[in-house]
């Protein structure tokens, strides 16, 4: 949103990332040809339905996936110009929780139920910063205060289960912010929360961005959340980026048929009811093969011959708007005439 600083230099760059799971039932092509970058002070929203590859993409960035079954088959992940995929284990450990903070989809993967929140926060701080216990404790309390938890010194002594869902999420944000990361990756951080608590957290993030200017990747399946906080948005479908645009462009002029259908399928809390919801027929794709056609083709109202023959690449249309759809491809603006001929014979 406009209140935030203008994006500055690129801090993270992802080029042609491909991640596969090799399971007993065959391969799962979870991430295919994913490219994007993140600038300091920028909030990049990542939307897509469940199984579209959002989490796997972000976990790949920090090599957090168990291998096997996961394998990053190709790609380049540059953090401040250094390739994460070529880093040593020590370098990776320093990066995780240091320069790159992570909020996981499942809160219990980052909070250990048997230790107090204070212990976990101070340990994280001491692992990455050269400070003593007392300083770490003080810093932990100020972090809790920063994320809006009252009586922070007191609450450091509590265990995770003594916090409500919303407060636990704040603790997670505090942990992720502990070492003042340059990049924060937040995976569905408010999905499990109620709307009034979500509103509190989103307000907190708006404030933190203003004060701290870190780059944030915010994963969600809620287009409403993205509309309220993102600068740019990536839409994922079937393990690929199908649309990438500024938040204004995405909502004012969605180009990909999937994005359009998704927006049309959502009723609005502020608008008069429509007679019938626009529904998207069919199911999301299974990812058992490398995509050889448009993954959305079986559900797309506009699909034509080419869509089932070739996977559309992500191409730039106008004003930095990128779309992976043959309809947007200059060569295919109108279905080529030979194809018509072929069909009519």
């Amino acid at each position: 949103m406009s209140e935030t600083r203008p994006p500055q230099s690129t801090v993270l760059e992802v080029n042609d990332l491909n991640t596969i799971f090799r399971t007993r039932d065959g391969e799962v092509h979870a991430v295919n040809h994913v490219d994007f970058s993140l600038a300091t002070g920028e909030l990049l929203g990542v939307v897509g339905e469940s199984g579209s590859g959002k989490s796997v993409t972000m976990m790949s960035l920090l090599k957090l996936l168990p291998s096997p079954p996961a394998e990053i088959v190709s790609g380049e992940i540059l953090f401040e110009g250094r390739d994460v995929l070529k880093m040593s284990d020590d370098e990776l450990r320093a990066l995780r929780g240091g320069d790159i903070g992570f909020i996981f989809q499942d809160p219990m993967t980052s909070l250990n139920p048997v230790f107090t929140v204070g212990y976990q926060l101070t340990e994280a701080l001491r692992e990455h910063l050269d400070i003593n216990k007392k300083e770490a404790r003080k810093r932990a309390a100020s972090l809790l205060a920063k994320v809006g938890i009252a009586q922070p010194e007191q609450r450091l002594k509590d265990f995770p289960h003594q916090f409500s869902g919303g407060m636990r999420q704040r603790v997670m944000i505090a942990m992720a912010l502990a070492c003042e990361p340059k990049v924060l990756i937040a995976d569905e951080p408010t999905t499990a929360l109620d709307v009034t608590i979500q509103a509190q957290i989103l307000e907190l993030v708006r404030d933190l961005r203003r004060d701290q200017g870190m780059g944030i990747i915010w994963i969600t399946h809620d287009l409403g959340v993205v509309a309220g906080i993102a600068d740019r948005v990536i839409v994922m479908y079937g393990g690929q980026i199908v649309e990438h645009a500024t938040v204004e462009a995405l909502f004012k002029d969605p180009r990909h048929p999937y994005t359009r259908a998704l927006l049309a399928a959502m009723p609005s809390v502020d608008a008069e009811r429509t007679e019938k919801l626009h529904s998207i027929a069919g199911q999301p794709p299974s990812l058992n093969k490398r995509p050889a056609s448009c993954s959305f083709a079986p559900r797309c109202e506009h699909a034509f011959g080419r869509c089932t023959e070739e996977n559309p690449p992500l191409i730039e249309t106008s004003g930095g708007h990128q779309v992976a759809c043959w309809l947007e491809h200059p060569q295919y603006m109108e279905p080529p005439s030979e194809m018509h001929l072929r069909e009519s014979f």
């Binding site: 949103m1 406009s2 709307v195 409403g224 509309a227 309220g228 909502f251 502020d270």
Partner: peptide, 15 residues
């Protein structure tokens, strides 16, 4: 409060 907290998929309105 509840209605005001529902995010709307419209950046202009959200702002």
């Amino acid at each position: 409060a509840l209605l005001s907290a529902v995010p709307e998929p419209d950046p202009a309105r959200e702002a």
